[in-house]
Each structure stands twice: as structure tokens, then as C-alpha cells.
Design a protein around this nucleic acid. Structure first.
Lengths: 167, 167
DNA sequence: AAAAAATAGTTACCTATTATAACTATATCT
DNA sequence: AGATATAGTTATAATAGGTAACTATTTTTT
């Protein structure tokens, strides 16, 4: 507080002996956010690989699955459910519609909103994709026992369950 | 296979009764990648909030912590350790250097590489940030007991431990 | 020792993701 | 009817992240 302005610690040893090329995270490994990000990176990489053949992105997959479970779901429903904002839903559904996987049906009762439905092609594809996704999860978590995998899932859900600050 | 070309399922009920504004993910909730993403979103949101005052991004925090643990670490070390690519490290260290938190010291033995060190300001800040990050993790996982939090961390590490495909 | 190959860091560029603001059309409220 | 709210859309911008090509150095090969 009293001495220097930028305090550049000039007496540092300029790297006499080098560290091994990969060092461990130390304190970092204790950080939940870091662990989550790393784990997600890995799981998503496997997912991408599994979906590459069908050129499906994670958000597209999620949308397809929700639409399958709730035929006629509206775009605002989707936005809420997936915690993404409306403009994102637009381009998402556009991409699905262009590929003939889903379609918008203007709602009779409230002509502002669109119900979204899967086409037959979409239905067939999502069935296939769910299998691939399942397998991709298993691949990505080889080191986990079935019990651990379930534990992990339960804990993760518990983390994001309370979306208090999800404004 | 025999009838239509795009199969737009025209006989669908155009959303007679609407779904509640937020529907549950169903199958989606069973997907590890989805749960990971949602949990990460929440944890990162808390982190952002905690760091806002200091205007520190997750990657900057991670870098600071690693540099603190390994003074004189090189940029390639960092890239390896954090699984990010070299150009990203450049801008990361630039931002830290511009703010007087870290500095590059050209290595005497191999003048191609830079050892990275924290300034006194950087050291002071990272100490403060670690406390904030710790608290932010706790806030983000209120619903978890201390045991569950440790379990979660262990499981996550186990997931990303084997970075076979991290080419 | 000179030439070739490899390495650390940098720069320039390009793409995908995600957020923000403003607009339209319908619907609801008073 | 007029004001207000809502569903969806468009346009736009900020950002993360990733690739390719370049410079400076070091190491390897001959």
C-alpha cells in the first residue's frame, strides 16, 4: 500500500527449472465450476461425435426431445423449459423446420402462438438420436459405475433444481 | 417409407389445450450432458455475480489460480493445463498483464518461452477471489449437504480424469 | 557449422453461441 | 375503443472459441 505503484516483483526467479508440460490444477480442482466445465466439455465432445453423422447440435437435440414429449408445445414453452430466450428458439425451430424434422402450426385459439410438432421424419430421427445420446453418455463416463452415474445425475439435478435466480 | 415425401403429419391437434408455461424435461432430465449444462449454467451465474465487482471471467480466474500455484509457468503449460489453445492464452495473459495482475518474464534458458508471474497486486487479488469463489460455490449448491458436494466433485473429476480423446 | 525441423508465442481471421433492442400481429383488459 | 400485454420475429452486436499462417528461437540432422 505504501511502496510501489504496480509492484512487478522483479526479483522473481525467471523460470530456472521448468514445470512438467501439464501441471495439476491444485486449488482449481476443488472448484465446482471448474470441475463442471471440464466434465461438460468431455461429455459434449462425445455427444458431438455421436451426433456428427446427423449434424445435430445439443440444443437441437434437446428441442426435438421436448417436442416429442409435448407435441404442440409453443415456442415460449420451449424457451422457458430449456432456459433459453425467444430469439434463440426462433432460429432453432427454423433449422428443424428447414430440415423437415418439425413444423409450426399456428394455434387456432391464440393466433399469436405456434404449436410445434415433429414430422414423421422427425419422430423417427429423435428415436434414433436418443439411443445414440444414451450410448454417448456411457462412453463419456466409462470410469463411472452405473450407481455412480445415477448418483451424479441426481446430484446435478439437485444443483439446478432451484432456479431462484433464473430471471 | 411409401407414402409422403416430407411427412408433415397434418392431422395433428393444433394445440387444443395448452401446456403449462414450463414443462418438465422428461427424457431430457435423464441426459447427463443436459444436467451438466444446466448445473454449470447455474454455478457460473453465481460465479459471474461474485466476480462482477472485480470484473474477472472464469478463464481469468483459473489462470490466476494456476499461476499462483506455479509461479513462472509458461503459456504452453497453461494451455495444456486448462485445455485451451495457445491463442486463447495470449489474450488471457494480455488482459491480466494490462491490468497489472500478472507479467511475462522472458525465460533466460529458452528465450522463446515466457514465465508468467503474479504481481503483488495479482497475488492479493487472487487470495480475495478464491474466497469469493468458494462462497459462490456454496451459494450455488445450497441444496447439497457438505458430503454431497464432495461426492459431486469426486464424481465430476472421475468423469474428466481420463482425457483420452483430448487431442 | 549449415540446413532442416520443431517449438513458443503471436497475429489475423473466421465461425458459432448467446444476448439485446426494436418491431409486428394478435390478444386481453378497462 | 384505447391502452396494455404477449408470441414471435428481425436485426444487431458482443463474445467465446478455433484455425491458419507468421516470427523468433531452439534443437536435430547431416
Amino acid at each position: 500500500m505504501t511502496t510501489s505503484k504496480k509492484t512487478p516483483s522483479p526479483e522473481q526467479t525467471p523460470l530456472e527449472e521448468a514445470y512438467p508440460t501439464t501441471v495439476t490444477g491444485l486449488v482449481l480442482e476443488e472448484r465446482l465450476g471448474y470441475a463442471l466445465r471440464r466434465a461438460q466439455l468431455k461429455v459434449f465432445k462425445h455427444f458431438d461425435e455421436a451426433m456428427r453423422e446427423h449434424d445435430i447440435r445439443p440444443a437441437q437435440f434437446s428441442s426435438l426431445v421436448v417436442i416429442e414429449g409435448y407435441p404442440g408445445v409453443t415456442q415460449s414453452n420451449l424457451a422457458q423449459t430449456l432456459s433459453i430466450d425467444p430469439p434463440r428458439v426462433v432460429s432453432l425451430i427454423n433449422s428443424l423446420e428447414e430440415r423437415g424434422l418439425a413444423l409450426r402450426v399456428r394455434c387456432k385459439r391464440d393466433r399469436r402462438s405456434h404449436g410445434i410438432f415433429l414430422t414423421k421424419t422427425g419422430e423417427a430421427l429423435v428415436e434414433r438420436l436418443k439411443g445414440l445420446a444414451e450410448q454417448s453418455d456411457l462412453d463419456a463416463t466409462q470410469l463411472l459405475s452405473e450407481i455412480e452415474r445415477r448418483q451424479l445425475l441426481t446430484l446435478l439435478r439437485k444443483v439446478y433444481a432451484s432456479e431462484e435466480g433464473n430471471d
